[in-house]
Computed example of a mutant assay.
Amino acid sequence: MIKTFKIVVLGGDGIGPEVTDQAVRLLREMEPYLSGVKFDLAEHRVGVGEYQRSGNALPESTFEACRTSDAVLLGAMGLPNVRYPNGKEIAPQLDLRERLQLFGGIRPIRLYHESDTPLKGYGKDEIDFVLVRESTEGLFYGRDVVADLDADEAINELRISRVGAERVCRLAFDLARKRNKAKKVSLIDKANVLSSMVYFRHIFDQVAKDYPDITPEHVYVDAASLFMVRKPDAFDVMVTENMFGDILSDLAAGLVGGMGMAPSADIGEDAAVFQPSHGSAPDIAGQGIANPIAMILSAAMMLEWLDHTETHRAAVALETAVSEVLSDPSHRTPDMGGKMSTTQLTDAVSSSLQKILDSQQLNA
Rank of each mutant, 00 (worst) to 15 (best):
I2P: 06
T4R: 09
I7H: 06
V9K: 10
L10A: 08
G14H: 03
G16V: 11
G16H: 13
V19I: 15
Q22T: 04
A23Y: 06
R25K: 14
L26K: 07
M30R: 06
L34M: 12
S35Y: 06
K38H: 09
F39S: 11
R45F: 05
G49N: 11
Y51E: 07
Y51A: 04
S54Q: 07
N56F: 14
A57K: 10
L58D: 00
P59M: 05
E60R: 14
E60I: 12
S61T: 08
E64Y: 09
A71T: 05
V72E: 04
V72R: 07
L73F: 01
N81G: 05
N81C: 04
K88W: 03
Q93E: 10
Q93C: 05
Q93F: 03
L96C: 12
L96Y: 07
R99K: 15
F103S: 10
G105L: 07
Y112S: 02
H113I: 02
H113Y: 00
S115N: 03
S115L: 08
D116V: 00
T117H: 09
K124C: 15
D125V: 04
E126P: 08
I127P: 00
V132K: 06
V132I: 12
T136H: 05
G138V: 03
F140V: 12
Y141T: 13
G142H: 09
A147C: 05
D148C: 10
A151D: 11
A151S: 15
I155N: 11
E157Y: 14
G164I: 08
R167F: 02
F173W: 10
D174Q: 15
L175E: 09
L175F: 08
R179E: 05
N180K: 15
K181Y: 06
A182W: 04
K183I: 05
K183T: 00
I188H: 14
D189E: 15
V193K: 05
S195M: 10
S196N: 14
M197R: 14
Y199M: 14
Y199T: 09
R201K: 12
F204Q: 13
V207T: 03
A208P: 01
P212D: 03
V219H: 06
V219S: 02
V221K: 02
D222P: 04
A223T: 10
L226H: 14
V229P: 00
A234F: 12
A234K: 14
V239A: 12
N242Y: 01
M243Q: 13
F244Q: 04
S249N: 02
A252P: 06
A252M: 04
A253D: 00
A262T: 05
S264E: 02
D266F: 03
G268E: 01
F274T: 01
Q275M: 06
S277R: 08
S277D: 00
A281L: 08
A281I: 05
A285T: 09
G288A: 02
A290T: 03
A290V: 06
N291W: 00
P292G: 11
A294V: 02
S298M: 01
W305N: 13
W305F: 13
W305S: 12
D307H: 06
T309C: 11
T309V: 10
H312W: 08
R313N: 12
A317E: 07
L318P: 14
V325Q: 01
L326S: 00
S327N: 11
S330E: 15
H331E: 01
K339D: 04
K339M: 01
S341E: 02
Q344K: 09
L345T: 00
A348Q: 01
V349F: 03
V349I: 13
S350P: 01
L357S: 09
L357M: 15
S359A: 15
Q361E: 05
N363K: 15
N363F: 07
